[in-house]
Write a protein that binds this DNA or RNA. Structure first.
Lengths: 229, 229
DNA sequence: GCGAATCCTCACCCCGTTCTCAGCAACCTC
DNA sequence: GAGGTTGCTGAGAACGGGGTGAGGATTCGC
């Protein structure tokens, strides 16, 4: 790919998790490398200077905070996103003091991670334009976390918001239910894909889309959001 | 073919299935190798570095997930498509999370598999252009899962869509009814080929092609789709 | 802590889809 | 043109995908 492709390093001692994240980020168009060990990660960061690092906090030998501190000590300003278990959330303040830029608690959804990464990269590049999604007369404001239909605000729950955002990001493209679950729900969600139907139903009601002309069902395939037609 | 011919490894302990898949993929122009054993597959992957791996999940000794994990552990980023039984569908997203890039539940249709493979290879090459098929005034948009005839949208059921896509992919080439059944229907379909006639009839009606000038019948041989000359 | 919002499962119902079959039309051969 | 073969299409039965309401569990906010 061209030189605008961001290079991301994912560091997590749970290799399965690192692989999952890497796979999703590659799908999103990034060039991804994984590491399962803090020391190796440090070496890679210094040698390859990635554009962003996703860093697990709890790792044996040398934890994420320590890795970050050492990066900063070397004067590297690469953006860092911490991954941490919910129980360790208290440590996060420590994390920020160590020079982290953002964090996510496990389990997270891949959409969430992608968003944080985008935001950090935008900031690093200095091209920090407002991320607004528009499809037809539906407007989704990322930063304000607000949704409007026909200039009237619609109140959505967190999950409803993530689902709508995902569909709008992929406007015009049919997304299958497993795909949706994999991206919108937390990665350890083990329920069936029926949950998607329920939330599409919620969204249609709140968005005044009872006939499904906005969020369209493609029977046997999935869902799309389309400008109108 | 030239050096752009992708090399694919198919791994499945049901050799009959592996052979069937291999045969279809060779017909589609790929260079295919098969393996029925996870360990042998690992060896092959490391030595020959295929462009893509089709990997059955349930295999004795070492299952597909484990193979994938080991591939990733060695730092290989070859795209992987998992094949899995419908009953194991819960494991599927797990599989995705093990670093697999896509998955299909058995039984699948060969067309479906071919499509996924194309999509993954496109992604790996970074040339991710919109896949659109055009024959005469019929347009089929893969991503949006939409079909237009003469700029008017036509609503097709899943099977109708797959059939039309297959014919359009093979435009100008007469496809026999058994060939069509083998590619468009799931591979364990055991009905007769009369089903093709029924669905061609559906398509002609929906595509406003009552006289069969678009989808042409070649008596005793099969069907072709041609730019209505 | 308490009430409210949210999340998720489940079950029921509707209807689109799939597939078979039978009758008929088109075509070919002799 | 007769008879056989092949293809077309309407009817209808069985199936299953999808919508939605109810309700229980959980989390959130104050």
């Amino acid at each position: 790919m061209d030189d605008t492709t961001a290079r991301i390093l994912v560091v997590d001692d749970e290799e399965a998790l690192a692989d999952m994240v890497a796979s999703a980020l590659r799908f999103a168009g990034y060039a991804v490398t994984t590491e399962s060990n803090g020391f190796d990660a440090l070496r890679i960061i210094k040698n390859r200077l990635p554009d962003l690092v996703v860093l697990d906090v709890s790792m044996p030998e040398i934890d994420g905070f320590e890795v970050c501190r050492r990066i900063r000590r070397d004067g590297l300003q690469v953006p860092v996103i911490f991954l941490t278990a919910r129980d360790d959330i208290d440590d996060l303040r420590t994390g920020f003091k160590q020079g982290g830029d953002d964090y996510l608690t496990k389990p997270f959804s891949l959409e969430e991670l992608g968003l944080r990464i985008e935001a950090l990269l935008r900031r690093a590049r200095g091209t920090d334009e407002t991320p607004r999604l528009v499809v037809g007369d539906v407007l989704l404001d990322e930063r304000a976390h607000q949704v409007f239909r026909d200039d009237k605000e619609v109140t959505l729950s967190p999950t409803e918001f993530r689902l709508l955002r995902f569909l709008m990001l992929n406007r015009g493209r049919v997304m299958s239910k497993p795909q949706i679950v994999d991206h919108v729900w937390e990665y350890d969600f083990d329920g069936n894909t029926g949950i998607v139907e329920t939330y599409v139903s919620y969204l249609r009601r709140k968005l005044d889309d009872a006939d499904g002309s906005l969020i369209q069902t493609v029977r046997g395939v999935g869902y799309v959001i389309r400008p109108s037609s």
